[in-house]
């Protein structure tokens, strides 16, 4: 059925919950996983507290470290169930586009993601990146809430 599942994560609680469920699903499907993290490009006007007062270089380093940590979380969860798991990341202004791109580039046949990411509005709406992935992806998308 599904052989290769792309699991994007941004490190939010909901996306880590989706990761754990996604790994279980991959295990049940006998599928392999590619974990993916989209690093937002540096913008001087950003209000993320961690990024204030940092230079482009500091930001790149911090963002890379954060990405590695997120991806390690997925790989650890995958290892626990013996699910083969690669990790990829990309720096982008368009996380949804990067997710679809990564799914295509790695030959994935399913994208599995949370309904909201870091900037989600709880129960009200579908997160904007999830929305964009659903609108533009040509491969099936499994959305966890």
């Amino acid at each position: 059925m599904f052989e290769h599942i792309l699991i994007p994560t941004d490190g939010s609680k909901l996306s880590e919950k989706a990761v754990r469920k996604g790994i279980r699903f991959a295990h049940a499907m006998n599928a392999r996983v590619t974990a993916f993290h989209a690093i937002p490009r540096f913008h001087a006007s950003d209000v993320m507290m961690d990024l204030l007062g940092t230079s482009r270089g500091d930001y790149a380093k911090a963002a890379q470290a954060y990405a590695n940590e997120r991806l390690r979380f997925v790989q650890k969860a995958a290892r626990a169930l013996d699910v083969p798991c690669d990790a990829r990341h990309a720096t982008t202004d368009d996380p949804a586009g990067a997710i679809i791109e990564a799914a295509k580039a790695n030959g994935c046949d399913l994208i599995l993601m949370a309904s909201h990411g870091r900037r989600g509005l709880g129960a009200l709406l579908l997160g904007s990146e999830t929305q964009k992935v659903l609108t533009h992806s040509t491969i099936p998308v499994l959305v966890y809430r």
Binding site: K21, L134, S137, T138, I139, P140, L142, V143, Y144, R145
Partner: peptide, 9 residues
């Protein structure tokens, strides 16, 4: 939906 939704295109 409160349960997961798998969308096919």
């Amino acid at each position: 939906s409160t349960v997961p939704v798998l969308v096919y295109r």
